[in-house]
Design a protein around this nucleic acid. Sequence first.
DNA 1: GTCTATAACTCGATAGAC
DNA 2: GTCTATCGAGTTATAGAC
Lengths: 185, 185
Amino acid sequence: MTARDELLGRSVAWFAEHGVGDTSLRTLAAGIGTSHRMLNYHFGSRAGLLGAVVEAVERAEQDALRELVATHEDPFEAGALFWQHVADRAAVFAPLFFELSTHAMRGEPHAALLRRWFAEGWSDALADGYRRLGVDEDRAATLALQSLAMARGLLFEVAVTGDRAAADTAMVRWTAMVRRELEAP
Amino acid sequence: MTARDELLGRSVAWFAEHGVGDTSLRTLAAGIGTSHRMLNYHFGSRAGLLGAVVEAVERAEQDALRELVATHEDPFEAGALFWQHVADRAAVFAPLFFELSTHAMRGEPHAALLRRWFAEGWSDALADGYRRLGVDEDRAATLALQSLAMARGLLFEVAVTGDRAAADTAMVRWTAMVRRELEAP
DNA sequence: GTCTATAACTCGATAGAC
DNA sequence: GTCTATCGAGTTATAGAC
Protein backbone atom coordinates (compact mmCIF):
# COMPACT_ATOMS: atom_id res chain seq x y z
CA MET A 1 0.00 0.00 0.00
CA THR A 2 1.71 3.18 -1.19
CA ALA A 3 1.09 6.54 0.44
CA ARG A 4 -0.84 7.58 -2.69
CA ASP A 5 -3.18 4.60 -2.50
CA GLU A 6 -3.72 5.24 1.19
CA LEU A 7 -4.69 8.88 0.53
CA LEU A 8 -6.89 7.85 -2.42
CA GLY A 9 -8.79 5.33 -0.31
CA ARG A 10 -9.35 7.85 2.46
CA SER A 11 -10.46 10.49 -0.07
CA VAL A 12 -13.07 8.15 -1.61
CA ALA A 13 -14.37 7.29 1.87
CA TRP A 14 -14.47 10.96 2.87
CA PHE A 15 -16.38 11.94 -0.29
CA ALA A 16 -18.80 9.03 0.13
CA GLU A 17 -19.63 10.27 3.62
CA HIS A 18 -19.56 14.05 3.17
CA GLY A 19 -20.43 14.36 -0.52
CA VAL A 20 -18.22 15.97 -3.10
CA GLY A 21 -19.68 19.44 -3.53
CA ASP A 22 -17.08 22.13 -3.96
CA THR A 23 -14.82 20.73 -1.27
CA SER A 24 -11.45 22.47 -1.29
CA LEU A 25 -8.16 20.61 -1.15
CA ARG A 26 -7.50 22.21 2.23
CA THR A 27 -10.81 21.03 3.68
CA LEU A 28 -10.37 17.49 2.37
CA ALA A 29 -6.75 17.38 3.54
CA ALA A 30 -7.75 18.41 7.05
CA GLY A 31 -10.53 15.82 7.01
CA ILE A 32 -8.27 12.89 6.14
CA GLY A 33 -5.22 13.92 8.15
CA THR A 34 -2.83 15.35 5.60
CA SER A 35 -2.02 18.70 3.96
CA HIS A 36 -3.17 20.17 0.66
CA ARG A 37 0.47 20.25 -0.36
CA MET A 38 0.65 16.45 -0.06
CA LEU A 39 -2.47 15.98 -2.19
CA ASN A 40 -0.90 18.09 -4.92
CA TYR A 41 2.34 16.18 -4.50
CA HIS A 42 0.77 12.75 -4.97
CA PHE A 43 -1.94 13.58 -7.52
CA GLY A 44 -0.43 16.54 -9.37
CA SER A 45 -3.52 18.71 -9.07
CA ARG A 46 -7.02 18.90 -7.69
CA ALA A 47 -8.34 17.54 -10.98
CA GLY A 48 -5.80 14.73 -10.84
CA LEU A 49 -7.07 13.72 -7.42
CA LEU A 50 -10.73 13.85 -8.45
CA GLY A 51 -9.89 11.92 -11.61
CA ALA A 52 -8.26 9.20 -9.53
CA VAL A 53 -11.34 9.09 -7.29
CA VAL A 54 -13.72 8.75 -10.25
CA GLU A 55 -11.51 6.13 -11.86
CA ALA A 56 -11.47 4.08 -8.66
CA VAL A 57 -15.26 4.28 -8.35
CA GLU A 58 -15.80 3.52 -12.04
CA ARG A 59 -13.47 0.54 -11.88
CA ALA A 60 -15.46 -0.88 -8.97
CA GLU A 61 -18.76 -0.25 -10.79
CA GLN A 62 -17.59 -1.90 -14.01
CA ASP A 63 -16.40 -4.90 -12.01
CA ALA A 64 -19.80 -5.03 -10.33
CA LEU A 65 -21.55 -5.02 -13.71
CA ARG A 66 -19.40 -7.85 -15.06
CA GLU A 67 -20.03 -9.81 -11.85
CA LEU A 68 -23.80 -9.35 -12.14
CA VAL A 69 -23.79 -10.33 -15.82
CA ALA A 70 -21.70 -13.42 -15.06
CA THR A 71 -23.92 -14.63 -12.22
CA HIS A 72 -27.35 -14.11 -13.79
CA GLU A 73 -28.99 -16.25 -16.45
CA ASP A 74 -30.94 -13.28 -17.77
CA PRO A 75 -28.70 -10.34 -18.77
CA PHE A 76 -31.69 -8.00 -18.56
CA GLU A 77 -32.17 -8.93 -14.91
CA ALA A 78 -28.50 -8.18 -14.28
CA GLY A 79 -28.97 -4.86 -16.03
CA ALA A 80 -31.96 -3.98 -13.87
CA LEU A 81 -30.06 -4.74 -10.67
CA PHE A 82 -27.13 -2.69 -11.87
CA TRP A 83 -29.30 0.30 -12.70
CA GLN A 84 -30.67 0.20 -9.15
CA HIS A 85 -27.13 0.05 -7.80
CA VAL A 86 -25.94 3.03 -9.85
CA ALA A 87 -29.03 5.18 -9.34
CA ASP A 88 -28.75 4.71 -5.57
CA ARG A 89 -25.34 6.36 -5.68
CA ALA A 90 -26.34 9.11 -8.12
CA ALA A 91 -26.70 11.89 -5.57
CA VAL A 92 -23.14 11.46 -4.31
CA PHE A 93 -21.10 10.60 -7.39
CA ALA A 94 -23.07 11.82 -10.42
CA PRO A 95 -22.04 15.47 -10.00
CA LEU A 96 -18.39 14.48 -9.71
CA PHE A 97 -18.69 12.11 -12.65
CA PHE A 98 -20.17 14.74 -14.97
CA GLU A 99 -17.77 17.42 -13.78
CA LEU A 100 -14.73 15.28 -14.52
CA SER A 101 -16.12 14.15 -17.85
CA THR A 102 -16.09 17.78 -19.01
CA HIS A 103 -12.33 17.75 -18.45
CA ALA A 104 -12.14 14.68 -20.68
CA MET A 105 -14.28 16.49 -23.29
CA ARG A 106 -11.80 19.37 -23.30
CA GLY A 107 -8.92 16.96 -23.80
CA GLU A 108 -7.13 18.03 -20.66
CA PRO A 109 -4.01 15.91 -20.11
CA HIS A 110 -4.85 14.80 -16.57
CA ALA A 111 -8.14 13.37 -17.86
CA ALA A 112 -6.63 11.26 -20.65
CA LEU A 113 -6.89 8.02 -18.66
CA LEU A 114 -10.42 8.89 -17.65
CA ARG A 115 -11.33 9.52 -21.26
CA ARG A 116 -10.33 6.00 -22.31
CA TRP A 117 -12.08 4.65 -19.24
CA PHE A 118 -15.35 6.36 -20.15
CA ALA A 119 -15.05 5.51 -23.84
CA GLU A 120 -14.17 1.82 -23.79
CA GLY A 121 -14.95 0.09 -20.51
CA TRP A 122 -18.72 0.41 -20.48
CA SER A 123 -19.37 -0.10 -24.19
CA ASP A 124 -17.28 -3.26 -24.21
CA ALA A 125 -19.01 -4.72 -21.16
CA LEU A 126 -22.48 -4.03 -22.57
CA ALA A 127 -21.65 -5.24 -26.08
CA ASP A 128 -20.41 -8.50 -24.56
CA GLY A 129 -23.77 -8.95 -22.91
CA TYR A 130 -25.66 -8.44 -26.18
CA ARG A 131 -23.35 -10.75 -28.12
CA ARG A 132 -24.07 -13.49 -25.61
CA LEU A 133 -27.72 -13.14 -26.57
CA GLY A 134 -26.78 -13.97 -30.15
CA VAL A 135 -26.96 -10.44 -31.51
CA ASP A 136 -24.65 -9.79 -34.46
CA GLU A 137 -21.61 -7.54 -34.09
CA ASP A 138 -23.04 -4.42 -35.71
CA ARG A 139 -26.31 -4.42 -33.80
CA ALA A 140 -24.58 -5.30 -30.52
CA ALA A 141 -22.34 -2.24 -30.82
CA THR A 142 -25.28 0.08 -31.45
CA LEU A 143 -27.42 -1.48 -28.71
CA ALA A 144 -24.53 -1.14 -26.28
CA LEU A 145 -24.11 2.53 -27.19
CA GLN A 146 -27.84 3.16 -26.88
CA SER A 147 -28.06 1.39 -23.52
CA LEU A 148 -25.10 3.36 -22.22
CA ALA A 149 -26.58 6.63 -23.48
CA MET A 150 -29.98 5.81 -21.98
CA ALA A 151 -28.44 4.94 -18.61
CA ARG A 152 -26.28 8.08 -18.50
CA GLY A 153 -29.13 10.27 -19.69
CA LEU A 154 -31.48 8.90 -17.03
CA LEU A 155 -28.74 9.20 -14.41
CA PHE A 156 -28.46 12.85 -15.45
CA GLU A 157 -32.21 13.31 -15.00
CA VAL A 158 -32.20 11.68 -11.57
CA ALA A 159 -29.31 13.87 -10.46
CA VAL A 160 -30.95 17.09 -11.69
CA THR A 161 -34.63 16.52 -10.93
CA GLY A 162 -34.47 13.85 -8.20
CA ASP A 163 -37.36 12.04 -9.90
CA ARG A 164 -36.16 8.48 -9.44
CA ALA A 165 -39.58 6.91 -10.07
CA ALA A 166 -39.89 8.40 -13.57
CA ALA A 167 -36.38 7.28 -14.44
CA ASP A 168 -37.07 3.76 -13.14
CA THR A 169 -40.18 3.54 -15.31
CA ALA A 170 -38.25 4.79 -18.34
CA MET A 171 -35.53 2.21 -17.75
CA VAL A 172 -38.02 -0.67 -17.36
CA ARG A 173 -39.81 0.31 -20.58
CA TRP A 174 -36.50 0.73 -22.42
CA THR A 175 -35.53 -2.82 -21.45
CA ALA A 176 -38.91 -4.07 -22.69
CA MET A 177 -38.39 -2.25 -26.00
CA VAL A 178 -35.03 -3.92 -26.50
CA ARG A 179 -36.49 -7.33 -25.66
CA ARG A 180 -39.18 -6.91 -28.30
CA GLU A 181 -36.59 -5.72 -30.83
CA LEU A 182 -34.51 -8.83 -30.27
CA GLU A 183 -37.50 -11.16 -30.53
CA ALA A 184 -38.61 -9.59 -33.81
CA PRO A 185 -36.93 -10.56 -37.09
CA MET B 1 -30.91 46.71 -24.20
CA THR B 2 -29.55 46.76 -20.68
CA ALA B 3 -25.85 46.70 -19.94
CA ARG B 4 -26.26 43.17 -18.61
CA ASP B 5 -27.87 41.91 -21.81
CA GLU B 6 -25.18 43.60 -23.85
CA LEU B 7 -22.41 41.88 -21.87
CA LEU B 8 -24.27 38.56 -22.00
CA GLY B 9 -24.56 38.74 -25.79
CA ARG B 10 -20.90 39.57 -26.18
CA SER B 11 -19.94 36.76 -23.78
CA VAL B 12 -21.92 34.17 -25.76
CA ALA B 13 -20.32 35.38 -28.99
CA TRP B 14 -16.85 35.33 -27.44
CA PHE B 15 -17.32 31.79 -26.12
CA ALA B 16 -18.73 30.59 -29.46
CA GLU B 17 -15.59 31.85 -31.18
CA HIS B 18 -12.89 31.03 -28.62
CA GLY B 19 -14.47 28.06 -26.84
CA VAL B 20 -15.20 28.00 -23.14
CA GLY B 21 -12.37 26.00 -21.65
CA ASP B 22 -11.16 27.38 -18.33
CA THR B 23 -11.37 31.00 -19.44
CA SER B 24 -10.88 33.36 -16.51
CA LEU B 25 -13.15 36.31 -15.83
CA ARG B 26 -10.22 38.60 -16.45
CA THR B 27 -9.46 37.09 -19.86
CA LEU B 28 -13.09 37.19 -20.94
CA ALA B 29 -13.50 40.75 -19.66
CA ALA B 30 -10.48 41.94 -21.63
CA GLY B 31 -11.80 40.12 -24.71
CA ILE B 32 -15.18 41.85 -24.70
CA GLY B 33 -14.10 45.26 -23.50
CA THR B 34 -15.03 45.37 -19.83
CA SER B 35 -13.55 44.53 -16.45
CA HIS B 36 -13.86 41.42 -14.32
CA ARG B 37 -15.42 43.62 -11.65
CA MET B 38 -18.28 44.50 -14.00
CA LEU B 39 -18.95 40.85 -14.83
CA ASN B 40 -19.21 40.13 -11.11
CA TYR B 41 -21.39 43.19 -10.68
CA HIS B 42 -23.91 42.16 -13.32
CA PHE B 43 -23.89 38.38 -12.88
CA GLY B 44 -22.94 37.99 -9.23
CA SER B 45 -20.21 35.45 -9.85
CA ARG B 46 -18.34 33.51 -12.50
CA ALA B 47 -20.87 30.68 -12.17
CA GLY B 48 -23.71 33.17 -12.47
CA LEU B 49 -22.31 34.43 -15.76
CA LEU B 50 -21.80 30.93 -17.15
CA GLY B 51 -25.30 30.00 -16.01
CA ALA B 52 -26.74 32.98 -17.87
CA VAL B 53 -24.78 31.95 -20.98
CA VAL B 54 -26.08 28.37 -20.86
CA GLU B 55 -29.61 29.58 -20.23
CA ALA B 56 -29.44 31.89 -23.23
CA VAL B 57 -28.12 29.10 -25.45
CA GLU B 58 -30.69 26.61 -24.14
CA ARG B 59 -33.52 29.05 -24.69
CA ALA B 60 -32.47 29.50 -28.30
CA GLU B 61 -32.19 25.74 -28.78
CA GLN B 62 -35.60 25.03 -27.26
CA ASP B 63 -37.11 27.71 -29.49
CA ALA B 64 -35.39 26.08 -32.47
CA LEU B 65 -36.89 22.68 -31.54
CA ARG B 66 -40.41 24.08 -31.24
CA GLU B 67 -39.96 25.88 -34.55
CA LEU B 68 -38.85 22.68 -36.28
CA VAL B 69 -41.69 20.67 -34.76
CA ALA B 70 -44.20 23.33 -35.82
CA THR B 71 -43.00 23.51 -39.43
CA HIS B 72 -42.64 19.79 -40.19
CA GLU B 73 -45.44 17.34 -40.84
CA ASP B 74 -43.37 14.46 -39.49
CA PRO B 75 -42.17 15.09 -35.91
CA PHE B 76 -39.49 12.44 -36.35
CA GLU B 77 -38.03 14.39 -39.25
CA ALA B 78 -37.98 17.50 -37.08
CA GLY B 79 -36.24 15.49 -34.39
CA ALA B 80 -33.59 14.26 -36.82
CA LEU B 81 -32.85 17.79 -38.00
CA PHE B 82 -32.64 19.01 -34.43
CA TRP B 83 -30.23 16.25 -33.44
CA GLN B 84 -27.95 17.31 -36.28
CA HIS B 85 -28.16 20.91 -35.13
CA VAL B 86 -27.28 20.07 -31.52
CA ALA B 87 -24.54 17.55 -32.32
CA ASP B 88 -22.84 20.09 -34.58
CA ARG B 89 -22.44 22.40 -31.60
CA ALA B 90 -21.40 19.68 -29.14
CA ALA B 91 -17.69 20.44 -29.17
CA VAL B 92 -18.23 24.06 -28.12
CA PHE B 93 -21.16 23.96 -25.71
CA ALA B 94 -21.43 20.40 -24.39
CA PRO B 95 -18.56 20.83 -21.88
CA LEU B 96 -20.11 24.04 -20.55
CA PHE B 97 -23.58 22.45 -20.45
CA PHE B 98 -22.45 19.44 -18.43
CA GLU B 99 -20.27 21.55 -16.14
CA LEU B 100 -23.13 23.89 -15.26
CA SER B 101 -25.56 21.01 -14.84
CA THR B 102 -23.37 19.71 -11.99
CA HIS B 103 -24.02 23.01 -10.21
CA ALA B 104 -27.74 22.38 -10.64
CA MET B 105 -27.28 18.82 -9.29
CA ARG B 106 -25.64 20.25 -6.18
CA GLY B 107 -28.52 22.64 -5.67
CA GLU B 108 -26.32 25.72 -5.79
CA PRO B 109 -28.45 28.89 -5.55
CA HIS B 110 -27.14 30.54 -8.72
CA ALA B 111 -28.16 27.41 -10.70
CA ALA B 112 -31.76 27.30 -9.48
CA LEU B 113 -33.14 28.85 -12.68
CA LEU B 114 -30.99 26.55 -14.76
CA ARG B 115 -32.33 23.56 -12.87
CA ARG B 116 -35.90 24.35 -13.79
CA TRP B 117 -34.80 25.08 -17.34
CA PHE B 118 -33.16 21.67 -17.66
CA ALA B 119 -35.97 19.86 -15.90
CA GLU B 120 -39.06 21.25 -17.59
CA GLY B 121 -38.37 22.89 -20.93
CA TRP B 122 -37.18 19.90 -22.90
CA SER B 123 -39.53 17.29 -21.47
CA ASP B 124 -42.53 19.49 -22.14
CA ALA B 125 -41.52 20.22 -25.72
CA LEU B 126 -40.92 16.54 -26.49
CA ALA B 127 -44.06 15.33 -24.72
CA ASP B 128 -46.08 17.80 -26.81
CA GLY B 129 -44.66 16.23 -29.94
CA TYR B 130 -45.66 12.73 -28.85
CA ARG B 131 -49.13 13.81 -27.78
CA ARG B 132 -49.68 15.25 -31.25
CA LEU B 133 -49.06 11.75 -32.58
CA GLY B 134 -51.99 10.52 -30.50
CA VAL B 135 -49.95 8.93 -27.73
CA ASP B 136 -51.68 8.88 -24.35
CA GLU B 137 -50.44 11.07 -21.50
CA ASP B 138 -48.56 8.41 -19.53
CA ARG B 139 -46.67 6.97 -22.49
CA ALA B 140 -45.92 10.43 -23.91
CA ALA B 141 -44.24 11.45 -20.66
CA THR B 142 -42.07 8.34 -20.60
CA LEU B 143 -41.19 8.57 -24.30
CA ALA B 144 -40.24 12.22 -23.84
CA LEU B 145 -38.00 11.34 -20.90
CA GLN B 146 -36.42 8.47 -22.83
CA SER B 147 -35.84 10.61 -25.93
CA LEU B 148 -34.28 13.35 -23.82
CA ALA B 149 -32.07 10.83 -22.01
CA MET B 150 -31.02 9.21 -25.28
CA ALA B 151 -30.15 12.57 -26.85
CA ARG B 152 -28.17 13.75 -23.82
CA GLY B 153 -26.42 10.41 -23.46
CA LEU B 154 -25.41 10.39 -27.13
CA LEU B 155 -24.35 14.03 -26.90
CA PHE B 156 -22.16 12.99 -23.98
CA GLU B 157 -20.62 10.23 -26.10
CA VAL B 158 -19.93 12.55 -29.02
CA ALA B 159 -18.30 15.09 -26.72
CA VAL B 160 -16.07 12.49 -25.01
CA THR B 161 -15.18 10.15 -27.88
CA GLY B 162 -15.76 12.36 -30.93
CA ASP B 163 -17.44 9.41 -32.68
CA ARG B 164 -20.28 11.28 -34.37
CA ALA B 165 -21.02 8.51 -36.88
CA ALA B 166 -21.76 5.91 -34.19
CA ALA B 167 -24.00 8.38 -32.35
CA ASP B 168 -25.86 9.25 -35.56
CA THR B 169 -26.50 5.56 -36.22
CA ALA B 170 -27.71 5.05 -32.66
CA MET B 171 -30.09 8.00 -32.99
CA VAL B 172 -31.49 6.81 -36.32
CA ARG B 173 -32.14 3.33 -34.91
CA TRP B 174 -33.68 4.76 -31.73
CA THR B 175 -36.13 6.73 -33.84
CA ALA B 176 -36.99 3.58 -35.79
CA MET B 177 -37.57 1.70 -32.54
CA VAL B 178 -40.00 4.35 -31.32
CA ARG B 179 -41.83 4.34 -34.65
CA ARG B 180 -42.34 0.58 -34.42
CA GLU B 181 -43.49 0.90 -30.81
CA LEU B 182 -46.13 3.43 -31.77
CA GLU B 183 -47.36 1.38 -34.71
CA ALA B 184 -47.72 -1.75 -32.57
CA PRO B 185 -50.78 -2.16 -30.32
C1' DG C 1 -28.13 52.57 -12.13
C1' DT C 2 -23.49 52.14 -14.02
C1' DC C 3 -18.72 52.20 -13.61
C1' DT C 4 -13.76 52.59 -11.58
C1' DA C 5 -10.42 51.62 -8.03
C1' DT C 6 -8.63 49.24 -4.25
C1' DA C 7 -8.09 45.89 -0.81
C1' DA C 8 -8.77 41.58 1.66
C1' DC C 9 -9.76 36.75 1.77
C1' DT C 10 -9.78 31.79 0.03
C1' DC C 11 -8.08 28.45 -2.90
C1' DG C 12 -5.20 25.87 -6.40
C1' DA C 13 -0.61 25.55 -7.86
C1' DT C 14 4.42 25.97 -7.52
C1' DA C 15 9.21 26.76 -5.73
C1' DG C 16 12.60 25.87 -2.39
C1' DA C 17 14.55 24.30 2.05
C1' DC C 18 14.97 20.31 5.02
C1' DG D 1 8.08 13.07 1.75
C1' DT D 2 7.18 17.06 4.27
C1' DC D 3 6.86 21.97 5.48
C1' DT D 4 6.91 27.05 4.70
C1' DA D 5 6.24 30.67 1.74
C1' DT D 6 4.53 32.79 -2.48
C1' DC D 7 1.84 33.75 -6.57
C1' DG D 8 -2.30 34.13 -9.65
C1' DA D 9 -7.21 33.96 -9.73
C1' DG D 10 -12.24 34.08 -8.11
C1' DT D 11 -14.88 36.34 -4.86
C1' DT D 12 -16.55 39.85 -1.84
C1' DA D 13 -16.61 44.34 0.09
C1' DT D 14 -16.03 49.32 0.35
C1' DA D 15 -15.60 54.02 -1.28
C1' DG D 16 -16.53 57.11 -4.63
C1' DA D 17 -17.42 59.36 -9.48
C1' DC D 18 -20.83 60.11 -13.15
